[in-house]
């Protein structure tokens, strides 16, 4: 009987050696170590032995099973490693092929620029407020100190839909709406679409986007305006940007200036600014002996054009995908 064990172990070892795959090996395992198979079958014949021989036979059998199990595990590890190796070799792909295309969603460049402006101004304590695009004459002009029938309105040819409602010509129209129910100090900004009757060309459009920023607090002067514009311009255009003031006229500011930034050796006019006209502050019950404030405005398109070199305003509303796809980047 003992010889039978030895014989079976030898056979099993030879079969393991001969196994080429883990599947072969599984068959070997079943044949020699399966339930009621191979060595386990021998275990059943233990009853046919004289009782004194049984313990020794049992011990030998157990040792043989243990040894075979160990060898089987080692052989399995060996085969598995080889099979994995082969699978990996077969599964190789051409990694230089392009991937599955994913559609890239992008924001419109004007949204990207507006977001950038918002980040800068919010960081400086400005709260954004939205106003209607179809505005009351009162807020668009009268509340901003435009006398009736004044030549200042020649530059603001308007689209009227009724006697009193027009598409806003400037986001400054928000100032009256805000000041009617806010007490200083406040810092407010708005971004939105404006409309003026203009012939459309590369630098003029009847539809454009404007930022308007205004604040009122104690002791505000032109130097605060200049400093704020400086900080704002440096955040948008780089740390060495300079700001310059030039006197200009807007009915809603006094003094009024046109401001420019130095950009690549040239002065670029960005927009209008000034101290909020005292008549406007007083109209909203703000004591001008205690409080003063400044306001400035600028074009969203203009900022994007300076930053990226776009040279035709019309591109922003044309929405040519070849244009839009150039501006998907973080700014």
């Amino acid at each position: 009987m003992a010889d039978t064990i030895d014989q079976m172990v030898r056979d099993a070892e030879a079969a393991m050696e001969a196994a080429r795959t883990t599947a072969d090996l599984n068959a070997v395992e079943t044949r020699y170590l399966g339930r009621n198979k191979g060595l386990n079958e021998l275990r059943r014949s233990i009853g046919t032995l004289p009782p004194e021989e049984r313990p020794a036979f049992g011990a030998r059998l157990n040792a043989a099973v243990a040894a075979l199990t160990e060898k089987l595990a080692a052989r399995r590890a060996e085969l598995e490693a080889r099979e994995l190796q082969e699978r990996l070799a077969v599964e190789r792909v051409d990694v230089t092929l392009p991937g599955r295309p994913m559609p890239v969603g992008r924001l419109h460049p004007l949204t990207q620029t507006a977001d950038q402006i918002k980040r800068v101004l919010i960081g400086m304590g400005y709260e954004f407020v939205d106003g209607p695009e179809l505005e009351d004459y009162a807020y668009n002009f009268a509340a901003l100190n435009y006398p009736e029938d004044h030549p200042a309105m020649d530059e603001q040819n308007s689209f009227f839909v009724t006697d009193t409602r027009l598409l806003r010509t400037q986001t400054t129209a928000l100032q009256g709406r805000v000041m009617a129910h806010r007490r200083p100090p406040f810092r407010i900004a708005t971004i939105g679409r404006c409309f003026r009757y203009e012939a459309v060309d590369a630098t003029h459009h009847h539809t454009f986007h404007q930022v308007d920023v205004f604040m009122v607090d104690r002791g505000i002067g032109m130097s605060d305006l200049k400093g704020t514009l400086g900080a704002f311009a440096r955040a948008l255009f780089g740390h060495d940007t300079q700001v310059r003031f030039r006197p200009d006229f807007f009915p809603f500011v006094e003094p009024g200036v046109d401001y420019a930034i130095a950009w690549k050796g040239r002065w670029l006019e960005l927009g209008g600014a000034g101290l909020i006209h005292p008549s406007i502050l007083r109209a909203y019950g703000i004591d001008t002996e205690q409080y003063s404030g400044f306001a400035f405005g600028l074009g969203v398109e203009r900022i994007h054009m300076i930053q990226t070199g776009v040279n035709d305003l019309r591109l922003y509303l044309e929405n040519d995908l070849r244009f839009l796809r150039q501006f998907g980047h973080f700014i």
Binding site: M124, G125, E127, P185, F186, D224
Partner: peptide
């Protein structure tokens, strides 16, 4: 160039 000095506002 100066920056406004005054109450903090919630932007």
């Amino acid at each position: 160039e100066t920056l406004p000095i005054g109450a903090t506002t919630q932007g």
